[in-house]
């Protein structure tokens, strides 16, 4: 019996009025994939790096995220702890088990109860790093990995993201380039999340409600780092 696979492929070819593609055509398509040329990219982000950071912040805020700018990584623990107290949240966070986050001076905020690992249903606040920030739409790009479990991006009601200034880029296409540089062409981390603001729904009478299933609040700490400017 013919497999579904060959039946489907056969029907596609038959209805397109041809057999399998010629080797030449197939090579052309393979090259097309390997070259992964950008399509039309909006000009919106053809601006200075500093203006891209401003654009990222403005777009993220318009999406309902909140943004704090910090001058150094050393200021992160204090900023996290202030965020928790501002929102009347318990001083308890679940953090990505990432070396760079571990290196932050959390000894300055001894009140903060920090656990590391993937999220559980009990976690209320998470702190994660980002892979990139896309200025065009105020979108965060988060990549999963052993030290960046993706459940932290969804289960807690409050998600705090540490984004370095140097990670802010113009467009999605620039993040693809950075991903290819890190993971190799044709590879992606298991889960890649593009996140544009906090979770929402309008499924009840088209009324916008925040915090449908994912985080109700998304807070982004943009930290100046030496690599840009």
């Amino acid at each position: 019996m013919m497999s579904s696979r060959s039946r489907i492929l056969g029907r596609i070819r038959h209805n397109l009025g041809r057999g399998p593609l010629s080797a030449e055509k197939a090579a052309e398509l393979k090259t097309r994939i390997e070259e992964h040329r950008p399509n039309l990219v909006p000009k919106r982000t053809e601006i200075s790096p500093a203006a891209q950071v401003d654009l990222f912040q403005a777009k993220a805020e318009a999406l309902g995220a909140t943004v704090t700018r910090l001058s150094s990584l050393d200021a992160v623990p204090e900023a996290v702890s202030r965020y928790l107290s501002d929102h009347n949240l318990a001083t308890k966070i679940k953090m990505s088990p990432e070396a760079a986050l571990d290196a932050l001076p959390f000894d300055q905020t001894p009140m903060l109860d920090i656990t590391r690992g993937a999220a559980t249903a009990e976690d209320d606040v998470s702190l994660t790093p980002a892979f990139a920030g896309i200025a065009e739409t105020g979108t965060l790009c988060l990549a999963s990995g052993p030290d960046t479990p993706s459940t932290l991006n969804f289960l807690p009601e409050n998600h705090i993201v540490l984004l370095r200034r140097s990670q802010i880029i113009g467009t999605m296409e620039e993040s693809w380039a950075r991903l290819r540089a890190k993971y190799g062409a044709g590879n992606l981390p298991r889960t890649l999340n593009l996140i544009s603001g906090p979770s929402r729904t309008a499924d009840i009478e088209q009324t916008l409600i925040m915090g449908a299933h994912g985080p109700r609040r998304l807070h982004i700490l943009i930290v100046d780092d030496a690599e840009k400017d």
């Binding site: 999220a119 052993p146 992606l188 544009s196």
Partner: peptide, 24 residues
């Protein structure tokens, strides 16, 4: 669809969890 520039979550799933991943 909704007039958003991007929907809130655009998620790319590639294969099962990797060897050292702790979720997925």
């Amino acid at each position: 669809a909704t007039g958003q520039e991007m929907s809130v979550y655009t998620t790319f799933s590639t294969g099962p969890r990797r060897t050292d991943d702790i979720d997925g």
